[in-house]
Amino acid sequence: MPTSFNPIFEPASAQTAAMAGLFELVLVICGVILAIVAGLVGTSLMRFRARPGAAEPRPCFGNRKLEMIWTAGPLLVVGWLFILTAKGMQQADPPANQTPDILVTGHQWWWEVRYLPGGEVTANEIHLSTGRKWLVRLASADVIHDFWVPELARKMQMIPGQTNQLWLEADAPGTYAGECAEYCGAQHAGMRLTVIAEPPSAFAAWLQNQAQPALGPVSATAASGLKLFQTMTCVNCHPLRGVVTGASVAPDLTHLASRHTLGAGVLALTETNLFRWLKNAQAGKPGCLMPDLKLTDAQARALVAYLETLQ
């Protein structure tokens, strides 16, 4: 869900600025060509209508010179476009020969985000510091997904069995929206991503926080929530550093409450939404892989209390 109305034409990085500039130029070229064709056709419709009783027009079979011109002309235009394309590709997707900074793995239907070399893990949100380029390596745990943050970078597929990479950078601090752009199953529409660019100091603080394991629960309700988390099947899917290791198929919850959305951008992260999600995730994101755990209201409230402590 883009934060700007017109994300492709409001680039927030050097790469997307190159793409937008090229796009604007090509649109103008296309506009001129369309105007020529529409002009020819429109003028003909106005000037050359059949008049009743008039004789058939004299047959004209063509004009070789004109035909060669309208073959050679477009060839030249196409050659020009090709040169622009080659240049644009270099600017929009410069080569990368360093180790990646972030590893993003696509899952049905969420994003696993892992920082290297520190190993900090989060889900569905990427934080960056402004003022530098980040090399993102893309992978998939299941089917083909497509990483797309229109204001910041090109699209790149996340293909099982293959790694791809792209550059991610933001000119200015802000929140940028992204989404999966390759049909990946029922909740393809519900696989949204938030990229938050911050000044370096704020980013460093965030990253440091993410590196900490979960703090212990502060209230009795939260403690019973933690107990529930450990005894019900939550631990089978959700990693939570400090509580459970070994799980990997669902988003890491260690700092869930520091995030802004739930369900990969489908709901805002509020207490109410968290409660609703725990009671019936399918209602919020039909088809998602979180089962109905048949929690009572009290159990759900306890879990919410615990999850809210995961700042």
Partner: peptide
């Protein structure tokens, strides 16, 4: 991009066929 050229040839040819004709809509 190359394949656009022969396609364009056709579009121009059809448009030119209209030019100077006696069009019945």
């Amino acid at each position: 991009m190359l394949i656009a050229v022969p396609t364009g040839v056709k579009v121009f040819a059809w448009s030119a066929t209209l030019w100077g004709g006696a069009i019945r809509l």
